[in-house]
């Protein structure tokens, strides 16, 4: 599913209540995909919210939160196909 609504870093930070540093660290570690020129899709918004909640609620390491987000995204895709 392609989606051409892309957010800037500033918008992403606002919408997800995270700091720009939080985002930068995870992008540099390869845990959070970006579109070219530091733009973020609406799918990234959902991913960030999930990673934030997992890291906060369970003290999860960023890598673990990203792994969970991968699995949940796969679950989303499978659920959409089953529907």
């Amino acid at each position: 599913m392609s989606d051409d609504v892309l957010l800037t870093l500033e918008e992403l930070v606002l919408v997800c209540s995270v700091t720009p540093e939080w985002v930068r660290e995870r992008v540099e570690e390869g845990l959070l995909p970006t579109a070219p020129e530091w733009r973020f899709s609406t799918i990234a918004v959902r991913r960030v919210r999930r990673m934030v909640a997992l890291e906060r609620d369970f003290d999860a390491a960023p890598e673990l939160a990203a792994l969970m987000a991968d699995l949940l995204e796969e679950l989303d895709a499978l659920r959409a196909r089953v529907r």
Partner: peptide
Amino acid sequence: IPVGVREGQL
């Protein structure tokens, strides 16, 4: 709300 608005759009 503009015509053509999509899920997740800002």
